[in-house]
Design a protein around this nucleic acid. Structure first.
Length: 434
DNA sequence: TCTGGGGTCCTTCAGCTC
DNA sequence: TCTGGAGCTGAAGGACCC
């Protein structure tokens, strides 16, 4: 695999890394740049290529191959055809009829991710994962032991490559947001240092859409104001930005445009919500089918809550109609729960209250928010509650699933609805024919 | 072209209490 | 007793990220 590094910008050369300085005055480009953003290159696809070396160099994508699947990850060879993640599969296949399609294997990606994160935590305890394939690191405390940030970054890149067989790109900067931009520009398989005194000149020529937090809508709003580069944002009055984008976003973007980002690397404390949703292979208008799917999703959410030791206080129902419009309805319970029965009862009530008759639905989802530690969660005890209730029954199901496989025990209503993933398995909606 | 699934954060609005 | 404002919480929706 190539170990090439980008040569533009302020990236240190191998010679600089070996010498330990970047100039005659002994000043290093990475002085005052303790933040690293490490991002795996085409992560899911790279994981697959480890066991499929015959596919190296070919256009390959990972994603669901169903009627409504989208691309989850694409190799750089596939990207040359214009394929990118979140693109509908049907379109990807039109762009590159020979593209190799592999179904996602999240267990594998989770395992590789754990190995990569272990490399990071070997360097510093200050690791903030953003997803399976990227993380921020604050290496301030490792400099004395391991050397300057750019050397640490190169060490991480080598270890990830040697131990996990995949490549990553690293951005090194004084702030999280600049480090993140730097890693993106270093891709693939590169390292980019943005010196603290060159942040503004690095940022201002960039198009507004490259800023972290500027998506399609915000970019449209900025373009309407005639702002096309980060420099344009920097020289726009704060009032104007706030009027166009709201208080928080306007002030945030104004600060970022000058490279000001006070956010430190935070080790996450825990999840804030846990949910599951399912897009039907075809739109569904049968309330019984939809209630059954809500039951399956509720049981799945509850099992995940119990597995991670959480209970949720608010249940959120999500409904997406055939025209892609989406609504949510939520209800806060008197006490947090990790019982599928309770979550389902709430989700079903919320659904019934919508009075949809036979509206065609594309997707339903169930989410638990307001998570608390299940062991410390107050529980609502009823006067006539039996000594062993649904919670204990579902814990028994957890034990059976651990022993005999997921889906081995499930609610009677879900029997015969397909092979199980979690409790319910495949979507209960009718499958496309032919 | 036709849009998955799992999340987080922000804004707005309504209802409640003081 | 009535009224208005502040502050809080819950609900809903939207935007964004990977």
């Amino acid at each position: 695999m190539s170990r090439s590094q980008i040569t533009r910008g302020a990236r240190l050369t191998q010679a600089d890394l070996a010498r330990g300085t970047d100039g005659a005055d002994g000043h290093r480009d990475d002085d005052g740049c303790p933040i690293l953003h490490v991002d795996m290159d085409a992560f899911y696809a790279s994981c697959e290529l480890r066991s499929r070396p015959d596919l190296v160099g070919l256009p390959m994508i990972v994603g669901g191959d169903g009627s409504r699947g989208v691309v989850t990850a694409a190799t750089y060879e596939a990207r040359k055809y214009g394929i990118h993640s979140a693109m509908p599969m049907s379109r990807a296949k039109r762009l590159c009829p020979d593209v190799v399609i592999l179904p996602p294997d999240f267990a594998l990606y989770t395992e590789v991710s754990a190995g990569v994160m272990a490399v990071f935590r070997d360097v510093t305890p200050l690791v903030e994962p953003l997803s399976l394939d990227e993380a921020f690191l604050d290496v301030s405390g490792a400099i004395r032991r391991m050397g300057p940030p750019a050397v640490i970054a190169e060490d991480i890149r080598s270890r990830v490559h040697d131990e996990q067989g995949i490549t990553c790109s690293v951005g090194v900067a004084s702030t999280k947001f600049v480090a993140k931009l730097a890693s993106t520009r270093a891709k693939p398989d590169g390292l980019l240092v943005v010196p603290a005194d060159r942040v503004v000149s690095f940022l201002h020529p960039l198009p507004v859409g490259e800023l972290w937090g500027v998506g399609e809508k915000t970019e449209e709003a900025l373009l309407r104001l005639g702002l096309t580069t980060v420099g344009d944002i920097a020289h726009t009055p704060l009032d104007t930005l706030v009027r166009a984008l709201g208080q928080a976003s306007g002030a945030h973007l104004a600060a970022l445009a000058w490279g000001r980002d006070p956010r430190s690397v935070e080790v996450p404390e825990g999840e804030k919500s846990i949910g599951n949703e399912e897009t039907f292979p075809r739109d569904v208008d049968d309330p019984e089918v939809i209630r059954r799917e809500l039951l399956r999703l509720s049981e799945k959410v509850a099992a995940r809550l119990r597995q991670q030791g959480y209970a949720g206080r608010t249940v959120v129902l999500k409904v997406r109609f055939a025209d892609f419009s989406t609504i949510t309805r939520s209800r806060t319970l008197r006490s947090p729960t990790d019982v599928g029965r309770d979550i389902y009862a709430t989700a079903r009530d919320l659904y019934d209250a919508l009075g949809l008759q036979r509206a065609r639905l594309r997707l339903v989802g169930v989410r638990a928010e307001g998570l608390v530690d299940a062991a410390e969660a107050p529980r609502q005890m009823l006067l006539d509650e039996p000594e062993l209730g649904w919670r204990e029954a579902e814990q028994a199901v957890d034990r059976a699933s651990a022993r005999f496989g997921r889906g081995s025990v499930r609610p009677a209503r879900l029997l015969g609805t397909g092979e199980g993933d979690g409790f319910g398995g495949a979507p209960v909606a009718p499958r496309p024919r032919g």
